[in-house]
Design a protein around this nucleic acid. Structure first.
Lengths: 213, 213
DNA sequence: AATACTACCGAACGAACGTTCGAACGCAAG
DNA sequence: CTTGCGTTCGAACGTTCGTTCGGTAGTATT
Protein backbone atom coordinates (compact mmCIF):
# COMPACT_ATOMS: atom_id res chain seq x y z
CA UNK A 1 0.00 0.00 0.00
CA UNK A 2 1.32 3.37 -0.97
CA UNK A 3 -0.86 5.73 1.01
CA UNK A 4 -1.04 5.73 4.79
CA UNK A 5 -4.69 6.71 4.80
CA UNK A 6 -6.57 3.66 3.61
CA UNK A 7 -8.07 4.22 0.18
CA UNK A 8 -10.11 1.57 -1.70
CA UNK A 9 -7.22 0.53 -3.82
CA UNK A 10 -5.21 3.68 -3.73
CA UNK A 11 -5.17 4.47 -7.43
CA UNK A 12 -2.25 4.14 -9.82
CA UNK A 13 1.31 4.41 -8.61
CA UNK A 14 1.84 7.96 -9.64
CA UNK A 15 5.44 8.48 -8.63
CA UNK A 16 7.04 5.69 -10.57
CA UNK A 17 9.15 6.34 -13.63
CA UNK A 18 8.13 3.25 -15.49
CA UNK A 19 4.89 2.69 -17.30
CA UNK A 20 3.15 0.22 -15.05
CA UNK A 21 -0.52 0.92 -15.25
CA UNK A 22 -1.56 -2.04 -13.20
CA UNK A 23 -5.19 -1.77 -14.21
CA UNK A 24 -6.63 -2.37 -17.68
CA UNK A 25 -9.64 -0.28 -16.64
CA UNK A 26 -7.38 2.71 -16.00
CA UNK A 27 -5.64 2.16 -19.31
CA UNK A 28 -8.98 2.23 -21.06
CA UNK A 29 -9.97 5.40 -19.22
CA UNK A 30 -6.68 7.05 -20.18
CA UNK A 31 -7.08 6.12 -23.81
CA UNK A 32 -10.64 7.37 -24.10
CA UNK A 33 -9.82 10.51 -22.13
CA UNK A 34 -6.89 11.25 -24.44
CA UNK A 35 -9.18 10.79 -27.41
CA UNK A 36 -11.52 13.45 -26.09
CA UNK A 37 -8.84 15.79 -24.75
CA UNK A 38 -7.05 15.69 -28.09
CA UNK A 39 -10.06 17.51 -29.54
CA UNK A 40 -11.09 19.75 -26.67
CA UNK A 41 -7.95 20.31 -24.63
CA UNK A 42 -7.59 19.53 -20.94
CA UNK A 43 -9.92 22.23 -19.64
CA UNK A 44 -12.32 21.65 -22.48
CA UNK A 45 -13.04 18.09 -21.37
CA UNK A 46 -15.11 18.08 -18.20
CA UNK A 47 -15.23 15.16 -15.79
CA UNK A 48 -18.83 14.67 -16.88
CA UNK A 49 -17.70 14.44 -20.50
CA UNK A 50 -15.04 11.93 -19.52
CA UNK A 51 -17.62 9.90 -17.61
CA UNK A 52 -19.78 9.79 -20.71
CA UNK A 53 -17.05 8.71 -23.15
CA UNK A 54 -15.75 6.07 -20.75
CA UNK A 55 -19.25 4.74 -20.09
CA UNK A 56 -19.03 5.32 -16.36
CA UNK A 57 -20.63 7.54 -13.75
CA UNK A 58 -19.04 10.79 -12.69
CA UNK A 59 -18.19 9.65 -9.20
CA UNK A 60 -17.26 6.18 -10.36
CA UNK A 61 -14.25 7.60 -12.19
CA UNK A 62 -12.67 8.64 -8.91
CA UNK A 63 -12.12 5.02 -8.05
CA UNK A 64 -9.27 4.83 -10.55
CA UNK A 65 -7.51 8.11 -9.88
CA UNK A 66 -7.60 10.88 -7.31
CA UNK A 67 -8.35 13.85 -9.52
CA UNK A 68 -8.65 15.08 -13.08
CA UNK A 69 -5.08 16.27 -13.13
CA UNK A 70 -3.86 12.68 -12.64
CA UNK A 71 -5.16 11.85 -16.11
CA UNK A 72 -3.05 14.52 -17.76
CA UNK A 73 -0.03 13.47 -15.73
CA UNK A 74 -0.42 9.79 -16.56
CA UNK A 75 -0.93 10.45 -20.27
CA UNK A 76 2.24 12.53 -20.37
CA UNK A 77 4.24 10.11 -18.27
CA UNK A 78 3.17 7.11 -20.27
CA UNK A 79 4.11 8.78 -23.55
CA UNK A 80 7.54 10.02 -22.56
CA UNK A 81 8.40 6.83 -20.69
CA UNK A 82 7.65 4.76 -23.76
CA UNK A 83 9.76 7.01 -25.98
CA UNK A 84 12.58 6.92 -23.43
CA UNK A 85 12.45 3.14 -23.20
CA UNK A 86 12.78 2.87 -26.95
CA UNK A 87 15.72 5.22 -27.18
CA UNK A 88 17.42 3.50 -24.25
CA UNK A 89 17.27 0.18 -26.06
CA UNK A 90 18.60 1.87 -29.16
CA UNK A 91 21.49 3.42 -27.25
CA UNK A 92 22.67 0.01 -26.13
CA UNK A 93 22.31 -1.63 -29.54
CA UNK A 94 25.30 -2.42 -31.74
CA UNK A 95 24.63 -0.28 -34.79
CA UNK A 96 26.24 2.33 -36.98
CA UNK A 97 25.30 6.03 -36.45
CA UNK A 98 23.20 6.18 -39.60
CA UNK A 99 21.28 3.03 -38.82
CA UNK A 100 20.72 4.25 -35.28
CA UNK A 101 19.29 7.54 -36.46
CA UNK A 102 17.11 5.68 -38.93
CA UNK A 103 15.76 3.41 -36.20
CA UNK A 104 15.20 6.35 -33.89
CA UNK A 105 13.04 8.13 -36.44
CA UNK A 106 11.10 4.94 -37.22
CA UNK A 107 10.45 4.33 -33.53
CA UNK A 108 9.40 7.89 -32.84
CA UNK A 109 7.12 8.19 -35.85
CA UNK A 110 5.72 4.72 -35.27
CA UNK A 111 4.82 5.47 -31.67
CA UNK A 112 3.40 8.86 -32.58
CA UNK A 113 1.23 7.41 -35.31
CA UNK A 114 -0.03 4.68 -32.99
CA UNK A 115 -0.84 7.14 -30.19
CA UNK A 116 -1.86 10.25 -32.07
CA UNK A 117 -4.45 11.34 -29.51
CA UNK A 118 -2.12 10.98 -26.55
CA UNK A 119 0.57 12.87 -28.44
CA UNK A 120 -1.83 15.68 -29.24
CA UNK A 121 -2.60 16.01 -25.53
CA UNK A 122 1.12 16.04 -24.79
CA UNK A 123 1.78 18.75 -27.37
CA UNK A 124 -0.73 21.00 -25.59
CA UNK A 125 1.68 21.13 -22.67
CA UNK A 126 1.85 20.56 -18.94
CA UNK A 127 0.80 23.99 -17.76
CA UNK A 128 -2.23 22.50 -16.03
CA UNK A 129 -0.19 20.19 -13.82
CA UNK A 130 1.12 21.14 -10.40
CA UNK A 131 4.58 22.65 -10.73
CA UNK A 132 6.16 19.56 -9.19
CA UNK A 133 4.58 17.24 -11.68
CA UNK A 134 5.16 19.65 -14.54
CA UNK A 135 8.85 19.65 -13.68
CA UNK A 136 8.87 15.86 -13.63
CA UNK A 137 7.41 15.67 -17.11
CA UNK A 138 9.76 18.38 -18.33
CA UNK A 139 12.67 16.29 -17.07
CA UNK A 140 11.49 13.26 -18.99
CA UNK A 141 11.07 15.38 -22.09
CA UNK A 142 14.48 16.97 -21.73
CA UNK A 143 16.10 13.57 -21.13
CA UNK A 144 14.58 12.30 -24.32
CA UNK A 145 15.64 15.36 -26.27
CA UNK A 146 19.23 15.01 -25.11
CA UNK A 147 19.43 11.36 -26.04
CA UNK A 148 18.06 12.10 -29.47
CA UNK A 149 20.55 14.93 -29.77
CA UNK A 150 23.43 12.56 -29.04
CA UNK A 151 22.30 10.21 -31.79
CA UNK A 152 21.94 13.11 -34.22
CA UNK A 153 25.37 14.40 -33.17
CA UNK A 154 26.98 11.03 -33.74
CA UNK A 155 25.40 10.83 -37.15
CA UNK A 156 26.65 14.25 -38.24
CA UNK A 157 30.12 13.61 -36.82
CA UNK A 158 30.31 10.32 -38.68
CA UNK A 159 29.11 11.85 -41.91
CA UNK A 160 31.20 15.01 -41.92
CA UNK A 161 34.28 13.67 -40.13
CA UNK A 162 34.12 16.27 -37.36
CA UNK A 163 31.53 17.13 -34.71
CA UNK A 164 29.06 20.01 -35.21
CA UNK A 165 29.15 22.88 -32.77
CA UNK A 166 26.58 22.68 -30.00
CA UNK A 167 24.21 25.41 -31.14
CA UNK A 168 24.08 24.00 -34.67
CA UNK A 169 23.44 20.51 -33.32
CA UNK A 170 20.73 21.76 -31.00
CA UNK A 171 19.03 23.59 -33.80
CA UNK A 172 19.18 20.65 -36.18
CA UNK A 173 17.74 18.40 -33.49
CA UNK A 174 14.83 20.80 -33.01
CA UNK A 175 14.23 20.83 -36.75
CA UNK A 176 14.08 17.03 -36.74
CA UNK A 177 11.62 17.11 -33.85
CA UNK A 178 9.62 19.65 -35.82
CA UNK A 179 9.25 17.38 -38.83
CA UNK A 180 8.40 14.41 -36.61
CA UNK A 181 6.09 15.98 -34.05
CA UNK A 182 4.17 18.31 -36.33
CA UNK A 183 2.45 15.26 -37.78
CA UNK A 184 0.08 15.58 -34.83
CA UNK A 185 -1.64 18.30 -36.83
CA UNK A 186 -2.04 16.61 -40.20
CA UNK A 187 -1.19 12.92 -40.36
CA UNK A 188 -3.67 10.08 -40.65
CA UNK A 189 -2.60 6.70 -41.93
CA UNK A 190 -5.65 6.54 -44.16
CA UNK A 191 -4.93 9.78 -46.04
CA UNK A 192 -1.13 9.81 -46.02
CA UNK A 193 0.04 6.22 -46.21
CA UNK A 194 1.83 4.01 -43.70
CA UNK A 195 3.88 5.58 -40.93
CA UNK A 196 7.02 3.78 -42.03
CA UNK A 197 6.96 5.50 -45.43
CA UNK A 198 6.66 8.81 -43.65
CA UNK A 199 9.55 7.92 -41.34
CA UNK A 200 11.63 7.05 -44.40
CA UNK A 201 10.84 10.41 -45.97
CA UNK A 202 11.80 12.28 -42.82
CA UNK A 203 15.04 10.33 -42.50
CA UNK A 204 15.97 11.10 -46.10
CA UNK A 205 15.01 14.76 -45.86
CA UNK A 206 16.88 15.26 -42.61
CA UNK A 207 20.07 13.41 -43.52
CA UNK A 208 20.33 15.11 -46.90
CA UNK A 209 19.57 18.37 -45.13
CA UNK A 210 22.58 17.79 -42.88
CA UNK A 211 24.82 17.20 -45.87
CA UNK A 212 26.32 20.67 -46.42
CA UNK A 213 28.15 22.89 -43.99
CA UNK B 1 -23.32 50.49 -38.22
CA UNK B 2 -23.25 46.75 -38.56
CA UNK B 3 -25.91 45.66 -36.09
CA UNK B 4 -29.56 46.64 -36.36
CA UNK B 5 -29.97 46.76 -32.59
CA UNK B 6 -28.08 49.83 -31.46
CA UNK B 7 -24.95 48.89 -29.53
CA UNK B 8 -22.49 51.46 -28.12
CA UNK B 9 -20.05 51.04 -30.91
CA UNK B 10 -20.88 47.55 -32.01
CA UNK B 11 -17.48 45.92 -31.48
CA UNK B 12 -14.99 44.87 -34.12
CA UNK B 13 -16.09 44.00 -37.62
CA UNK B 14 -15.92 40.28 -37.18
CA UNK B 15 -16.90 39.11 -40.64
CA UNK B 16 -14.25 40.86 -42.63
CA UNK B 17 -11.38 38.99 -44.22
CA UNK B 18 -8.81 41.70 -43.80
CA UNK B 19 -7.00 42.61 -40.64
CA UNK B 20 -8.65 45.87 -39.75
CA UNK B 21 -8.79 46.10 -36.02
CA UNK B 22 -10.05 49.62 -35.93
CA UNK B 23 -9.30 50.07 -32.25
CA UNK B 24 -5.87 50.18 -30.62
CA UNK B 25 -7.51 49.20 -27.33
CA UNK B 26 -8.80 45.98 -28.88
CA UNK B 27 -5.37 45.30 -30.36
CA UNK B 28 -3.84 45.65 -26.93
CA UNK B 29 -6.47 43.36 -25.42
CA UNK B 30 -5.82 40.76 -28.11
CA UNK B 31 -2.07 40.89 -27.58
CA UNK B 32 -2.27 40.53 -23.82
CA UNK B 33 -4.92 37.84 -24.07
CA UNK B 34 -2.76 35.87 -26.49
CA UNK B 35 0.14 36.18 -24.09
CA UNK B 36 -1.90 34.58 -21.33
CA UNK B 37 -3.70 32.03 -23.52
CA UNK B 38 -0.36 30.89 -24.91
CA UNK B 39 0.45 29.61 -21.43
CA UNK B 40 -2.94 28.44 -20.21
CA UNK B 41 -4.92 27.60 -23.31
CA UNK B 42 -8.28 29.09 -24.22
CA UNK B 43 -10.32 27.45 -21.47
CA UNK B 44 -7.51 27.94 -18.98
CA UNK B 45 -7.73 31.72 -19.26
CA UNK B 46 -10.88 33.00 -17.58
CA UNK B 47 -12.47 36.32 -18.38
CA UNK B 48 -11.43 37.43 -14.90
CA UNK B 49 -7.82 36.51 -15.70
CA UNK B 50 -8.04 38.42 -18.96
CA UNK B 51 -9.47 41.44 -17.15
CA UNK B 52 -6.51 41.36 -14.75
CA UNK B 53 -3.78 41.12 -17.40
CA UNK B 54 -5.38 43.82 -19.51
CA UNK B 55 -5.82 46.11 -16.52
CA UNK B 56 -9.56 46.37 -16.98
CA UNK B 57 -12.69 45.31 -15.17
CA UNK B 58 -14.48 42.09 -16.04
CA UNK B 59 -17.54 43.76 -17.47
CA UNK B 60 -15.51 46.52 -19.08
CA UNK B 61 -14.00 44.00 -21.48
CA UNK B 62 -17.36 43.40 -23.11
CA UNK B 63 -17.29 46.84 -24.61
CA UNK B 64 -14.67 45.72 -27.14
CA UNK B 65 -16.08 42.36 -28.12
CA UNK B 66 -19.26 40.39 -27.65
CA UNK B 67 -17.90 37.29 -25.99
CA UNK B 68 -14.80 35.38 -25.05
CA UNK B 69 -14.89 33.35 -28.23
CA UNK B 70 -14.40 36.53 -30.29
CA UNK B 71 -10.90 36.82 -28.88
CA UNK B 72 -9.90 33.39 -30.12
CA UNK B 73 -11.45 34.10 -33.49
CA UNK B 74 -9.74 37.46 -33.89
CA UNK B 75 -6.34 36.09 -32.88
CA UNK B 76 -6.63 33.31 -35.43
CA UNK B 77 -7.97 35.58 -38.15
CA UNK B 78 -5.31 38.19 -37.61
CA UNK B 79 -2.52 35.61 -37.78
CA UNK B 80 -3.64 33.81 -40.91
CA UNK B 81 -4.60 37.02 -42.69
CA UNK B 82 -1.13 38.42 -42.12
CA UNK B 83 0.52 35.25 -43.39
CA UNK B 84 -1.79 35.22 -46.40
CA UNK B 85 -1.05 38.86 -47.21
CA UNK B 86 2.66 38.15 -47.20
CA UNK B 87 2.41 35.12 -49.45
CA UNK B 88 0.09 37.00 -51.82
CA UNK B 89 2.69 39.72 -52.27
CA UNK B 90 5.31 37.07 -52.84
CA UNK B 91 3.18 35.31 -55.44
CA UNK B 92 3.02 38.47 -57.52
CA UNK B 93 6.71 39.29 -57.21
CA UNK B 94 9.17 38.74 -60.05
CA UNK B 95 11.55 36.20 -58.58
CA UNK B 96 13.07 32.82 -59.27
CA UNK B 97 11.58 29.74 -57.56
CA UNK B 98 14.49 29.38 -55.16
CA UNK B 99 14.46 33.01 -54.12
CA UNK B 100 10.70 32.84 -53.68
CA UNK B 101 10.94 29.85 -51.37
CA UNK B 102 13.70 31.59 -49.46
CA UNK B 103 11.59 34.69 -48.96
CA UNK B 104 8.59 32.63 -47.98
CA UNK B 105 10.51 30.91 -45.20
CA UNK B 106 11.99 34.20 -44.00
CA UNK B 107 8.55 35.82 -43.92
CA UNK B 108 6.93 32.91 -42.12
CA UNK B 109 9.65 32.50 -39.52
CA UNK B 110 9.92 36.26 -39.05
CA UNK B 111 6.21 36.62 -38.40
CA UNK B 112 6.16 33.59 -36.13
CA UNK B 113 9.08 34.85 -34.08
CA UNK B 114 7.46 38.28 -33.76
CA UNK B 115 4.10 36.84 -32.70
CA UNK B 116 5.07 33.72 -30.77
CA UNK B 117 2.22 33.98 -28.29
CA UNK B 118 -0.45 34.44 -30.95
CA UNK B 119 1.01 31.52 -32.90
CA UNK B 120 0.96 29.30 -29.83
CA UNK B 121 -2.74 30.07 -29.40
CA UNK B 122 -3.30 29.27 -33.07
CA UNK B 123 -1.46 25.96 -32.79
CA UNK B 124 -3.87 24.91 -30.03
CA UNK B 125 -6.62 24.87 -32.64
CA UNK B 126 -10.09 26.22 -33.33
CA UNK B 127 -12.13 23.54 -31.61
CA UNK B 128 -13.55 26.13 -29.22
CA UNK B 129 -15.01 28.29 -31.98
CA UNK B 130 -18.50 27.86 -33.37
CA UNK B 131 -18.41 25.50 -36.32
CA UNK B 132 -19.08 28.36 -38.72
CA UNK B 133 -16.12 30.35 -37.49
CA UNK B 134 -13.96 27.26 -37.18
CA UNK B 135 -14.64 26.55 -40.85
CA UNK B 136 -13.71 30.12 -41.74
CA UNK B 137 -10.36 29.83 -40.03
CA UNK B 138 -9.77 26.40 -41.53
CA UNK B 139 -10.33 27.91 -44.96
CA UNK B 140 -7.75 30.62 -44.34
CA UNK B 141 -5.30 28.00 -43.10
CA UNK B 142 -5.91 25.72 -46.07
CA UNK B 143 -5.55 28.64 -48.48
CA UNK B 144 -2.21 29.47 -46.99
CA UNK B 145 -1.05 25.86 -47.07
CA UNK B 146 -1.95 25.55 -50.75
CA UNK B 147 -0.10 28.71 -51.72
CA UNK B 148 2.98 27.55 -49.85
CA UNK B 149 2.65 24.18 -51.57
CA UNK B 150 2.66 25.84 -54.97
CA UNK B 151 5.87 27.68 -54.16
CA UNK B 152 7.47 24.49 -52.86
CA UNK B 153 6.28 22.64 -55.96
CA UNK B 154 7.76 25.27 -58.28
CA UNK B 155 11.05 25.06 -56.43
CA UNK B 156 11.27 21.27 -56.72
CA UNK B 157 10.21 21.33 -60.36
CA UNK B 158 12.85 23.90 -61.13
CA UNK B 159 15.54 22.03 -59.26
CA UNK B 160 14.84 18.53 -60.55
CA UNK B 161 13.58 19.40 -64.01
CA UNK B 162 10.22 17.68 -63.56
CA UNK B 163 7.32 18.15 -61.13
CA UNK B 164 6.97 15.97 -58.01
CA UNK B 165 3.89 13.82 -57.67
CA UNK B 166 1.16 15.32 -55.54
CA UNK B 167 1.47 13.11 -52.48
CA UNK B 168 5.23 13.63 -52.29
CA UNK B 169 4.78 17.37 -52.66
CA UNK B 170 2.09 17.45 -50.01
CA UNK B 171 4.26 15.50 -47.62
CA UNK B 172 7.33 17.66 -48.20
CA UNK B 173 5.24 20.77 -47.61
CA UNK B 174 4.02 19.38 -44.30
CA UNK B 175 7.61 18.62 -43.32
CA UNK B 176 8.56 22.22 -44.07
CA UNK B 177 5.64 23.45 -41.98
CA UNK B 178 6.81 21.12 -39.25
CA UNK B 179 10.28 22.64 -39.09
CA UNK B 180 8.86 26.16 -39.21
CA UNK B 181 5.88 25.87 -36.90
CA UNK B 182 7.40 23.65 -34.25
CA UNK B 183 9.52 26.61 -33.15
CA UNK B 184 6.46 27.60 -31.11
CA UNK B 185 7.65 25.02 -28.58
CA UNK B 186 11.32 25.92 -28.23
CA UNK B 187 12.43 29.12 -29.91
CA UNK B 188 13.34 32.34 -28.15
CA UNK B 189 15.48 34.95 -29.85
CA UNK B 190 17.54 35.34 -26.69
CA UNK B 191 18.56 31.69 -26.44
CA UNK B 192 18.71 30.70 -30.10
CA UNK B 193 19.86 33.71 -32.04
CA UNK B 194 18.07 35.92 -34.57
CA UNK B 195 15.09 34.57 -36.47
CA UNK B 196 16.75 35.21 -39.82
CA UNK B 197 19.59 32.81 -39.00
CA UNK B 198 17.02 30.20 -38.11
CA UNK B 199 15.14 30.84 -41.36
CA UNK B 200 18.40 30.40 -43.25
CA UNK B 201 19.04 27.09 -41.52
CA UNK B 202 15.55 25.82 -42.34
CA UNK B 203 15.88 26.91 -45.97
CA UNK B 204 19.20 25.09 -46.30
CA UNK B 205 17.99 21.96 -44.53
CA UNK B 206 14.82 21.79 -46.57
CA UNK B 207 16.30 22.50 -49.99
CA UNK B 208 19.13 20.03 -49.49
CA UNK B 209 16.56 17.59 -48.16
CA UNK B 210 14.66 17.89 -51.44
CA UNK B 211 17.78 17.15 -53.44
CA UNK B 212 17.48 13.39 -54.00
CA UNK B 213 14.62 11.39 -55.49
C1' DA C 1 -24.76 -16.03 8.33
C1' DA C 2 -21.66 -12.55 9.06
C1' DT C 3 -17.80 -9.87 7.60
C1' DA C 4 -14.74 -7.38 4.62
C1' DC C 5 -13.58 -5.45 0.49
C1' DT C 6 -13.90 -3.88 -4.38
C1' DA C 7 -16.51 -1.55 -7.73
C1' DC C 8 -19.70 1.69 -8.67
C1' DC C 9 -23.33 5.26 -8.43
C1' DG C 10 -26.98 9.44 -7.43
C1' DA C 11 -27.18 13.50 -5.11
C1' DA C 12 -25.28 17.33 -3.45
C1' DC C 13 -21.50 20.91 -2.25
C1' DG C 14 -18.91 25.17 -2.73
C1' DA C 15 -16.30 27.48 -6.13
C1' DA C 16 -15.56 29.43 -10.48
C1' DC C 17 -17.30 30.23 -14.90
C1' DG C 18 -19.21 33.56 -18.95
C1' DT C 19 -22.40 36.92 -19.23
C1' DT C 20 -25.78 40.71 -18.10
C1' DC C 21 -27.52 44.88 -16.08
C1' DG C 22 -28.01 49.39 -14.17
C1' DA C 23 -25.41 53.01 -12.86
C1' DA C 24 -21.64 56.08 -12.86
C1' DC C 25 -17.88 58.87 -14.99
C1' DG C 26 -15.67 62.38 -18.36
C1' DC C 27 -16.45 65.19 -22.12
C1' DA C 28 -18.18 67.50 -26.26
C1' DA C 29 -22.53 69.52 -28.44
C1' DG C 30 -26.71 72.16 -27.93
C1' DC D 1 -26.30 74.24 -17.40
C1' DT D 2 -28.11 70.42 -19.57
C1' DT D 3 -28.15 66.65 -22.63
C1' DG D 4 -26.31 62.69 -24.88
C1' DC D 5 -22.78 59.43 -25.81
C1' DG D 6 -18.65 56.63 -25.42
C1' DT D 7 -16.47 54.23 -21.78
C1' DT D 8 -15.97 51.86 -17.55
C1' DC D 9 -17.40 49.49 -13.51
C1' DG D 10 -19.50 46.66 -9.19
C1' DA D 11 -22.81 43.47 -8.29
C1' DA D 12 -25.35 39.86 -9.40
C1' DC D 13 -27.39 36.05 -12.48
C1' DG D 14 -27.79 31.19 -13.79
C1' DT D 15 -24.81 27.46 -15.20
C1' DT D 16 -21.21 24.30 -15.02
C1' DC D 17 -17.16 22.89 -12.85
C1' DG D 18 -14.22 19.31 -9.88
C1' DT D 19 -14.91 16.95 -5.97
C1' DT D 20 -17.13 14.59 -1.93
C1' DC D 21 -20.24 11.72 0.61
C1' DG D 22 -23.37 8.06 1.87
C1' DG D 23 -24.93 4.14 0.23
C1' DT D 24 -25.66 -0.27 -2.58
C1' DA D 25 -24.83 -4.10 -5.01
C1' DG D 26 -21.67 -8.25 -5.82
C1' DT D 27 -18.06 -11.43 -4.43
C1' DA D 28 -14.77 -13.87 -1.49
C1' DT D 29 -13.37 -15.09 3.07
C1' DT D 30 -14.36 -16.58 7.68
Amino acid sequence: MRFSKSVPWSGPILDITQVINQSPELDEILEKSAKLMARTGYHGASMRDLARVTGRSLSGLYHYFQGKEDLLYLINQSGFSSLLNMVDELEAAAMGPSEKLHNLICNHIGYFADHLDEMRVIVFGTQDLTSKRSRKISNLKENYRKKVQVIVGNYITDKKGYPPDTSELERKTFLLFGMMNWIFSWYSSGDHGPAQDLAEDIFNTFTRGCAGN
